[in-house]
């Protein structure tokens, strides 16, 4: 090798390394790297109770470090003999969007970028074609004449397309009918979002921001623990409430009582009465997802 070619070669190599370093420079802002524990964490279903406990404490520490609030994170298990069903009275709903914002507050959704699980569609009377729905309505007051309102959220299907397409089994249906996501296992491929016919899933395209004074400290692992960028999330019937017997947040704020929730396996529950006695409508019945979310009418 001649001296000249060596010099030339090493100059080129140095330039290459410099260009590489310059290219990777933004990574300096990556901030807190992922901890080893976080990286090595197993799938939800493979965690032993002791492991789970450790994971929950770790999440509590992470949240406290990030938001300055000590949360109370638990892993709520499904109850025996319970299958949740949601029923929504489209005759009564006035489209005030209180449910949307109660949900955001309860479930620690990102405020910027904005993530909302419930979309309220303003629909012209006489059709159920969701293509005609409008989510951006902003009148002085609701309800408006000639329209009805149809909130759409995760339908917790009995035959869910979203869980079937997940390449890493990070989303599945629990025995009580709630389709959940393991936020710490999801790889963020957005397959499930493409599969969902109800547009119920939301992706964290950037790191979520929640003002710390608005953080709900009552958290569940599969429910409202703060998510990070790059994972999917969606309505989970407020696992942290419903699995201890309480009603979901969207129901509790509804000013017209249009939202009904309960255990369908209990024949005396409100939802059982509705499914027996009311005219019930299933959104996009033809796609065969068998939702656990029903729309019904008075009369």
């Amino acid at each position: 090798m001649s001296r000249r070619s060596f010099l030339r070669g090493s100059t080129a190599a140095a330039a290459g390394v410099a260009a590489m370093a310059a290219g990777l420079a933004p990574l300096r802002k990556l901030g807190e790297a992922i901890s080893v524990d976080q990286f090595l964490q197993q799938h939800y279903k493979e965690l032993s109770p002791a492991d789970m406990d450790k994971v929950l404490r770790r999440i509590e520490n992470e949240v406290e470090r990030q938001y300055g609030v000590r949360p109370h994170v638990r892993d709520y298990k499904p109850m025996n003999g319970v299958e949740y069903v949601y029923a929504l009275n489209v005759t009564r709903c006035v489209g005030c969007r209180k449910c949307v914002h109660a949900c955001v507050a309860e479930n620690n959704q990102s405020r910027d970028p904005e993530i909302q699980y419930i979309r309220v569609l303003k629909m012209p009377n006489g059709t159920f074609d969701v293509e005609k729905g409008d989510v951006n309505y902003a009148p002085e007051s609701v309800p408006e004449k000639g329209f009805f309102y149809m909130p759409v959220q995760c339908h917790q299907c009995k035959n869910p397309p979203c869980t079937k397409v997940c390449p890493v089994k990070a989303t599945w249906t629990e025995p009580d009918g709630i389709t959940v996501i393991d936020y710490n296992w999801c790889i963020g491929c957005r397959y499930c979002e493409a599969a969902c016919p109800y547009f119920a899933r939301r992706f964290n395209f950037s790191e979520p921001t929640i003002p710390k004074e608005k953080l709900n400290p009552e958290m569940s692992y599969l429910g409202n623990q703060p998510r990070h960028k790059g994972v999917m999330e969606k309505c989970h019937f407020c696992i942290q409430r419903t699995r201890v017997g309480r009603y979901p947040a969207c129901l509790e704020v509804c000013p017209t009582g249009s939202r009904k929730f309960g255990n369908i396996l209990d024949p005396s529950s409100e939802v059982a009465h509705i499914l027996r006695e009311k005219r019930v409508f299933v959104l996009k019945e033809e796609v065969g997802t068998l939702p656990r979310f029903f729309y019904y009418f008075d009369v």
């Binding site: 006035v94 489209g95 005030c96 969007r97 209180k98 949307v100 914002h101 910027d112 970028p113 904005e114 909302q116 979309r119 309220v120 989510v135 951006n136 309505y137 902003a138 009148p139 002085e140 007051s141 609701v142 309800p143 395209f205 950037s206 790191e207 921001t209 000013p255 017209t256």
Partner: peptide, 20 residues
């Protein structure tokens, strides 16, 4: 039931995430 002032709707889709 009297008329209610609705809460704000979702932010316009196109600005999602870009701002932050």
């Amino acid at each position: 039931i009297p008329q209610i002032i609705p809460f704000p709707g979702p932010k316009p889709v196109l600005t999602h995430g870009l701002g932050s």
